[in-house]
Nucleic acid binder design. Structure first.
Lengths: 305, 305
DNA sequence: ATGAGGGCATAAGCTGGTCTTATGAGCGAG
DNA sequence: CTCGCTCATAAGACCAGCTTATGCCCTCAT
């Protein structure tokens, strides 16, 4: 309670309305009425009125034009609503993922996935599946390729997703997407100012921030360079690798799935490379002969395109 | 209070921990200790302990392994944390945008931007700027190209961003990115099953869901088709157009910036087109002769790559 | 013209969640 | 063996946000 606390940069949570308020705002935008929005989210009209008002106070911006025949977003409100939609979508993905982690047993569809896929792609697929088949309970187990294969072969999972180069024996597969590994550095790194692409030899000769051996990402890189990748540090999660690269510890090689956000915000920059193929296939896998049916087939069809 | 209410699908806000809890989880992941994380976010250790515990109850998943010498994430916890990070990042973008809307006057940098750029790109740039120059207050005014030009020429904005085909007279500009308009439909639309690309003539002959005339998107499309785009409906926001297209009302033409999420989740599919260039430049603009300096130059350098 | 109905705002009171302080217990290092 | 770090538990205070009960404004239809 000291005075000094007043000077701290208050956390996001104090500056950003909570999810209930953001959902309410989206409902107001869609329905054009505070009362109707209140009904939709299951609160009373005065509660909605007060919530929107306190959100406007918090943001310091008028969001809705109230009139005796409804409420419309102001220009600023429309913009805020669009940004709010992205927060709510991220929360929906979080929810879809968390449900799948919880619904361990007795699920109609048990999925095993590699970390990168579980992290970046699966929540979206689960949302899409939920939109089409709201009552399909899905459970998720995450692990490396070997673990995914083991679960499938033991009958403890119905459908798997892997990102390595090889398909584990005993499994059939189909390619559902392609991924590309890219070389990234912090913007301050000398490589960021190169005018010519990096050569494979240069890449192989430079110590890199890498995932541990055995990860799908590392496998692909080692294969592309002929088993030569030199680690500067080895870290056990993609997130740790990214954080290290952003902080300028050195160059790294990461899936473009993992670094989209960082590239967009220029926390990392992509370095062109020539003479080496860093593409890899993302595959759905299942025990040989047991073509996916039912919910598994449904999910699979959502992932292809 | 009827019993039936217990059966309603509870809203996201009831199933997703609030932002403060998610930030706390990220701090625990980074620091490896509940107490240290508590200090970082400015609460006491028991509060952090209880918050994490109730989050675990809410999600039905154990997130951290507690030990007398620290706390580490479980496997499921690591996954949840990665999903949480995306929610927090979306919230940070929301916050950056909202601050810019609020800080109207007396800002060191006044930005005017077209809707699409304000909606999809600017929050990320503002976050990056804030990371490098935490004390730069930025204000944002959104409008169409004409409005942006007007603000710049009246000296009410320091830097503008537009997405149209032409640069308004009296302004200098530089291309900061390229955008592409793509033809999209709901997955059920016949076009989604075509094997050959759409021709320009087919596109011009088909009524489309479009933004109103005068929007940057519409300008580009009209120019590419020779002024011929036929509207099925005209809507005044990108969001409304997307919603209409997702619902299957018909094909639409939208910026790839706007539909990334929808394509990823297969709520929309992209239809290849031949014989027509739907690329457009995104430009930073400023009054002729007044090259951006100071914060404006800083922001500009973040947007280029 | 006049009432019905939908829209929003305000006031008062309750409730529940979440924080704080205070304390205890496990483990490791000096 | 004790200090220092970890986390857990208990008790009480506090505050935010909800509901219920109103009232006013505007529009539309009778």
């Amino acid at each position: 309670m000291s005075e000094a606390e007043g000077l701290r940069t208050e956390s996001l949570a104090h500056r950003v309305p909570d999810l209930a308020a953001l959902e309410l705002l989206l409902a107001v935008a869609r329905l054009g009425s505070l009362g109707a929005a209140a009904r939709e989210v299951g609160i009373t009209q005065p509660a909605a009125s007060s919530r929107i008002r306190s959100m406007e106070r918090q943001l310091g911006v008028a969001l809705v034009d109230r009139s005796p025949r409804g409420s419309r977003l102001t220009d600023a409100g429309a913009l805020v609503t669009d940004w709010a939609r992205r927060v709510v979508e991220a929360a929906a993905a979080f929810d879809a993922g968390a449900r799948a982690l919880r619904d361990r047993r007795d699920s109609r569809l048990r999925v095993a996935a590699s970390m990168t896929i579980a992290e970046y792609l699966l929540p979206g697929w689960l949302l899409a599946l939920h939109a089409e088949r709201p009552d399909t309970a899905v459970s998720l187990l995450a692990g490396n390729s070997a673990k995914v294969a083991e679960l499938l072969l033991a009958g403890e999972a119905d459908l798997g997703f892997v990102e390595g180069l090889t398909v584990p024996t005993g499994l059939d597969s189909t390619v559902i997407a392609r991924d590309r590994l890219i070389v990234v550095t912090a913007p301050a790194h000398p490589w960021a100012r190169r005018r010519r692409p990096l050569t494979a030899a240069e890449l192989a000769a430079t110590p890199l921030i890498l995932r541990e051996r055995g990860s799908g990402t590392r496998q692909v890189l080692d294969a592309a360079l002929g088993g030569l990748a030199r680690p500067l540090i080895e870290l056990s999660s993609t997130t740790a690798v990214k954080a290290s690269a952003v902080s300028g510890a050195g160059p790294s090689v990461l899936s473009e799935l993992a670094v989209g956000e960082e590239l967009g915000m220029r926390r990392l920059v992509s370095i062109p490379v020539e003479g080496v193929s860093l593409r890899r296939d993302l595959r759905a896998v299942w025990p040989t002969g047991h073509r996916p049916t039912g919910p598994a087939r449904e999910l699979l069809s959502l992932t292809r395109g």
